[in-house]
Amino acid sequence: MNNALWRRAWLRATLTLSPPLAWFLVVYLASLVVMLVTAFWTLNDFTNQLVQSWNLQNFRDLFSEPYPHIIGRTVGLAALVTVTDIVIALPFAYYMARVATPRTRNLLFAAVLLPLWASYLARVYAWIVILQKGGTLDWSFSKLGLGAPDIGYSNTALWIVFSYIWLPYMIIPVFGAMERIPNSLLEASADLGARGARTTWRVILPLVLPGIAAGSIFTFSLTLGDFITPVLVGGARSKFIGNVIYDNIGLAGNLPFAAALAVVPIVIMIVYLSGARLLGAFREL
């Protein structure tokens, strides 16, 4: 028996993996399927009970206001946060990977990773203190004679906080990709007459693109699925898909509509991941 196991690596792997795999299939995928099925049911207005009859009303409702608006806001902000993080992470990762001394690089790495050890909420609250009316930002601006921006509780605040919170998830894979570019490629580019900007555009960017794609999976999906930060720093029109789902599964008990709404980010992520795969994102994960 042991012999047979030894010779058949796949059999060993299967036996080792099957209990957790079975657990995963049953608990996770089954729940997902149940949720998806629920999306085709409805809620009886009188008894507040689920009506198990198949219909597409919940999905039709997704196309009526305000849901397209909310979905658009969520996706738009997720995209904006992703672009912002790319713009910040590229020079940062470049400096870390190719300019900084090993000592500085370690320091920067720690600086990038350390915030991840702090509670998400603590970091968001820190930003509330910075952004709120009369907060650190307003104070600094008025000291500089620029007038207080007063962007607390707004979509601008949401954009800044999200960009900050998810930035490490962009920097790390971009840094990884940047570090893997052989120095000789950059020298070759310079040798063939390219200045820094062209080398960046024609050599560095295409080669870190998989890293960017990998990082964007994090920044995009984490923003897409968040519903806490919109509550904490958002303004009067900052609801995300997650907030609306939460509102519907709470006391409203409208699980069918919540489930239908939950399909939206799932579909968006499937599309996104397919695109990221084409860019080679999974080689960087």
């Binding site: 490629l185 020298e187 040798d191 295409p206």
Partner: peptide, 27 residues
């Protein structure tokens, strides 16, 4: 380097992996 009229053949070739041969040569 980009202002010197010399070109280099690198030990590891340093071909741009994301470009085809044509684009490499035309770079």
């Amino acid at each position: 380097p980009y202002l010197r009229d010399v070109n280099t053949v690198f030990q590891d070739y340093a071909l741009f992996p994301h470009m085809d041969v044509q684009d490499n040569v035309e770079y």
